[in-house]
């Protein structure tokens, strides 16, 4: 108790970079250029373009999250099943790309997918028809999955490696086949990992604008891009803040929904619940 002052730097940090900015967003969102109160910034979300951008963002991020889950689960199971030592090599293969800058990785995909990019060049050499992936929602989903997959694998791996082999043995011993054991034992026991993974993929995917910029080429407009444009292209900080606030509420609602399916809710989804 006497050492409470040791927490001061953290409190200062939180105040300066978390609490004050949030209040600034709320303040900007609820005022107009002249500083007087208004709902109009919030109501901007009601514009057809913005609703479309939000809906598309939800759609693409949900798709990317599900694809991540489907790809990550078997990988995490293989990793968790391997004896120590052998799995470090495999784990490295997934962690290694994360050492590279996020923008660089996404730009690398741009080069691969471009109309005259690496993939199409190879296809042409093989006399196969060229594919149009760049600047489509598909490319954006690809970018999301590629960038956020490790965030799904790691929590799943952690929770799966904690499930004792003897527990699955017990299920087999009591008459369950391999599939029944997976559905009735492994899957429910890995729920906390799935929830963490879904959170860690869904939230950044929902709010991304860089992936859309680089792989969507301005043809795919997500809510993140709209907000970015409001701020960067100087339209209006007030409208940008209003839209941000709505997006935060959406994130919060989805987290509550996810947490509802967590029976022994550890609060991983909506963060730091005691």
């Amino acid at each position: 108790m006497r050492r409470r002052w040791l927490a001061a730097p953290f409190l200062l940090w939180s105040a300066a970079f978390i609490i004050i900015p949030i209040f600034m967003i709320i303040w900007f969102a609820l005022t107009d250029q002249s500083g007087s109160f208004t709902w109009s910034n919030i109501l901007e979300m009601g514009l057809a373009d913005n609703i479309k951008a939000l809906a598309l963002a939800l759609l693409l991020s949900i798709a990317a999250t599900l694809i991540c889950l489907v790809i990550a689960y078997p990988i995490a199971m293989i990793l968790a099943g391997k004896k120590n030592g052998r799995n470090t090599m495999i784990a490295m293969l997934f962690i290694l790309p994360m050492w590279m800058n996020f923008l660089l990785r996404t730009m690398a995909w741009q080069t691969l997918l471009e109309k005259n990019g690496v993939i199409n060049t190879i296809l042409r050499v093989l006399h196969l028809p060229a594919v149009t992936i760049i600047n489509t929602p598909g490319a954006v989903i690809l970018g999301m999955v590629y960038n956020f997959l490790p965030f799904m694998i790691l929590p799943l791996y952690t929770v799966l490696s904690k499930i004792d082999r003897e527990i699955t043995y017990s299920a087999r011993d009591l008459g369950a086949g391999p599939f029944q054991t997976f559905v009735k034992i492994t899957l429910p026991l890995s729920k906390p990992g799935m929830i963490s993974g879904i959170t860690m993929v869904f939230v950044p995917a929902l709010t991304t604008f860089v992936i859309t910029d680089l792989l969507g080429g301005g043809k795919v407009q997500l809510i993140g891009n709209t907000i970015e444009q409001e701020f960067i292209q100087g339209s209006s900080w007030h409208v940008g803040s209003g839209l941000s606030l709505i997006l935060m509420i959406f994130v919060f609602i989805s987290m509550v929904l996810v947490a509802k399916y967590d029976p022994q809710s550890t609060g991983t989804a909506i963060g730091g619940r005691p």
Partner: peptide, 20 residues
């Protein structure tokens, strides 16, 4: 024969109750 097809059951050393 697979474990689930055998007419015997095991009690393991560790606590292996399904904790969910």
């Amino acid at each position: 024969l697979a474990p689930n097809k055998r007419q015997l059951n095991t009690v393991f050393q560790k606590d292996t109750l399904f904790y969910h």
